[in-house]
Amino acid sequence: MTSRMQTVRRVSLAVVRKDLRIEWSSKVLLNQVAPFSLVIMIMFAFALDNEGILQRVAPGLVWLATLFSMLVIVQRSFAVETADGALDALRVAGTEPLGIFIGKSLALMVQLLALELMLLAIALVLYAVEPTAMGYAETFATMLIATIGLGFVGTLYGGLGAGARGRETLLPLLLLPAVAPVLIGATRATEAAFGSGGAQSSEGWPWIGLLAVFAGVFGAVGALAFGPMIEE
């Protein structure tokens, strides 16, 4: 392993451990984000109030709730970096930006995955969704691949908005259009996994492939752009 790759690995591990430690200590995911996404799911259930419709649209609701909750997690992830100038300090210290990007992306992915599992459980209970064994496998594959893409794009846009004034409103404006392909791909793949509207399980895999392409593109763009972006 080259010296640079060793540094990237070391910094990534330090950053992911630090971010998860902050989450463990503050419990924001557990005490604020999870209840927020639960409320979203319940409100959808009240608004649609029809089991047939709910079963049909459950995949889209799960992913919409994920994206809204993700905004909170990304804001939070970069708020801890800017509260006492830690992100500046990392930059000033010459800390490998690729390591920071990978570390923060991984921490975001772990939190998102935990949230998505909870949302899936809520969908099973509230919306009476009943996937098959193959459907569960497809759902977990969708979650994993979509989460990788969301982790990269969330970190990239979170870093972009970190130093900006009015970042609370700027982030949703920038991030939501960028994650539209994930919303579409993940929803279609989950529809196939849930069998919503008569969809077949096999119809989901091409969408999962698209999610993988999206994850790869944002991973590559983030790896290249994150350093110059925080430098500015």
């Binding site: 430690r21 200590s25 500046d88």
Partner: peptide, 24 residues
């Protein structure tokens, strides 16, 4: 370089902060 802010993570303890910088 130490400017007006300290570059600390306010929700981590003193040991966790110093250990983080050490691990980088």
């Amino acid at each position: 370089l130490l400017g007006h802010s300290n570059g600390l993570y306010l929700e981590l303890t003193v040991t966790q902060n110093v250990s983080f910088w050490a691990s980088t």
